[in-house]
Nucleic acid binder design. Structure first.
Length: 534
RNA sequence: GCGCCUGUAGCUCAGUGGAUAGAGCAUCAGCCUCCGGAGCUGAGGGCCACAGGUUCAAAUCCUGUCAGGCGCACCA
């Protein structure tokens, strides 16, 4: 149909020509039909579908992986929360997305570095230090108010108390001249520990940790700005220094050094991105909260000012998470320090459920996270639905092994026994996994995997309900195991009873093994466990 | 006012320019004698926000309008 215009022929005619050529491949195609206005429907020979099973068996955990990213160096920077408090739900969503993307890009051949950028310079750190100092002084009986826009959370007092105990224990002076600096340093270490512990809940590993403060210490900020100055993208105005971001389509130029001589956040971000670019990555991916979206044109301007195309940098935005409990909004007030932390949520619902739910929506759409739903062990909860499929297969294998039924390999079975629509539907689902994964990686959208897994799990449950895998237990076996089976009722009632031959059992066990492999592979990318039993 | 994101079933959301737009929840009606019912089967439910345009073909691309969210600092 697309060729119709350039070829000056009716789509139907073109379809016939293509179909004619395809007819010389009866070894692959069972049926070729031209359907108006110009569709060509191809029916692939059933035997070919079975190759999918032997492929899965052969490739195992590599099934679905691809090589299109080979040789591409990617830097994925995510979470990067200020070390001024524990991680909250928004960070959790970014963490789940980032972790899944790292796995996804790696299994499509990319060479990925996962990086955490620590915003350990500037105002927020100072506020934390001031807040800790105030609490510290309060503990020692002084009337020191926490700063107006300081950190109110209980963890601040906890940090102050630990600092106090530590100083007492080691006999240090309680009010040194550099008390604020001591608070800052102490809080920094404690917060970073806390963040790492929170990330450990999600089993995330970062390859590199980079520090904003270090960019200042090493003069990387000045150096990066000097390059921009040399390229004529910096100018002085009203006593401040500006970056000419309008040269690259930004709304207005941006200040990099204020009238008072202090650098802005943009200045260190310029240095940081210059640093990342000069480390030789083909692609930078940043995951940011959606409230930072106005910042994107600026950073893309930075990338271009250093002489790279703007597509070198991709920013993925993560939208707000609305926390609900049984449908009702859980209110959070950052001011009063009543933020619900990621840790609290993970401890309540579990890491698997949390991660999976974070990944059931496109990252740029808002997400309702219902705590009650996340805890539910039912079909309402997609993570259990998928994990259950995996555990169910594991259970069949356990029973098979108890009964002494071998788990065969695809070369030992007659796969054409798999003829039912439910079986073919499963096989086709398995075949869709690699292209789905590739599309997901190209679009940087791991949520496609969660949808895929739910679909595959549904196909498995449908198959499982309709068909038997293992043969019915023989009377002799029953006597051995002292199991009572009531007398059969009408065969049409209820679940279908199916006699399965040894050959059919073998073929179905192979099929289930492959389904299990694919579910496990998909869950692994999401960072969700695939339990043997639940 | 400007910019970005989002408007798809009652709700929450998938949907790669192609055929009759899908899933889960909710509602209604069914299904357990043995491999896990944490499951399965079916029904109802849609001017794909609206209006134009491009195209043989639009939920999808373009323009405009309306609605919601977010952002528009010499904060981070």
């Amino acid at each position: 149909m697309n060729l119709s215009a350039s070829e000056h022929r009716a789509p139907r005619e073109i379809a016939e020509i293509i179909a004619g050529r395809l007819r010389s491949h009866p070894d692959i195609l069972e049926k070729i039909e031209v359907v108006p206005p110009g569709f060509i429907n191809l029916t692939i020979k059933r035997e070919l579908w079975f190759k999918v099973l032997s492929q899965i068996e052969g490739e195992g955990e590599r099934y679905g992986s691809a090589t299109f990213g080979q040789g591409k160096l990617v830097l994925l920077e995510y979470v990067s929360a200020n070390p001024t408090g524990p991680l909250h739900m928004g960070h959790g969503r970014g963490a789940a997305l980032g972790g899944a993307l790292v796995n996804l890009l790696r299994c499509t051949g990319h060479d990925v570095t996962a990086e955490y950028y620590i915003n350990d310079a500037g105002r927020q750190m100072k506020l934390l230090a001031d807040s800790v100092e105030a609490r510290y002084r309060q503990l020692l009986g002084q009337a020191a108010p926490v700063p107006e826009d300081g950190y109110q959370g209980a963890y601040v007092e906890e940090i102050a108390r630990e600092l106090l105990e530590s100083r007492r224990a080691s006999g240090q002076e309680l009010f040194p001249a550099n008390l604020n600096e001591a608070c800052r340093a102490w809080a920094y270490v404690k917060m970073l520990e806390a963040i790492k512990a929170d990330l450990a809940l999600f089993n995330l590993h970062f390859d590199t940790w980079s520090s904003e403060a270090l960019l200042f210490e090493t003069k990387a900020v000045e150096q990066a700005l000097a390059i921009l100055k040399f390229r004529d993208y910096l100018f002085e105005q009203e006593g401040a220094q500006w970056f000419r971001s309008t040269a690259f389509g930004d709304d207005k130029d941006r200040v990099v050094r204020k009238q008072d001589g202090e650098f802005t956040y943009l200045a260190s971000d310029i240095a940081y991105h210059h640093d990342k670019l000069s480390r030789g990555y083909d692609r930078l991916i940043n995951i940011w909260g959606a409230d930072h979206h106005g910042y994107i044109p600026r950073m893309q301007a930075v990338v271009q000012a250093f002489g790279y195309t703007k597509d070198r940098l991709t920013v993925l935005l993560v939208q707000i998470v609305n926390l609900l409990r049984g449908g009702a909004r859980v209110t959070m007030s950052k001011r009063a320090g009543e933020l619900i932390t990621l840790r609290e949520v993970v401890e309540e619902v579990g890491a698997d459920a949390a991660k999976f739910i974070f990944l059931t929506r496109r990252s740029d759409s808002q997400l309702d996270f219902d705590l009650e739903l996340a805890k539910q062990k039912s079909a309402d909860n997609p993570v259990y639905y998928v994990q259950y499929a995996h555990a169910r297969i594991a259970s069949v294998f356990r029973v098979a092994s108890e009964r002494g039924i071998p788990i065969p390999s695809t070369t030992e079975v007659h796969l054409p026994y798999l003829v039912s629509p439910e079986e073919l539907n499963l096989i086709k689902g398995l075949a869709e996994y690699p292209p789905m994964l590739e599309a997901s990686a190209r679009a940087l959208e791991p949520h496609r995997i969660t949808y895929y897994l739910q679909d595959l799990a549904a196909r498995l449950h449908t198959f499982y309900y309709k068909h038997r895998v293992l043969p019915p237990v023989l009377d002799a076996e029953l006597e051995d195991r002292e199991i009572q089976i009531p007398v059969a009722v009408e065969p049409d009632q209820g679940r279908k009873r199916e006699d399965v031959s040894a050959g059919v059992t073998a073929a179905r066990l192979c099929l289930l093994g492959c389904v299990q492999t694919v579910i496990r592979n998909g869950l692994a990318i999401l960072g969700v466990s695939a339990p043997e039993r639940m």
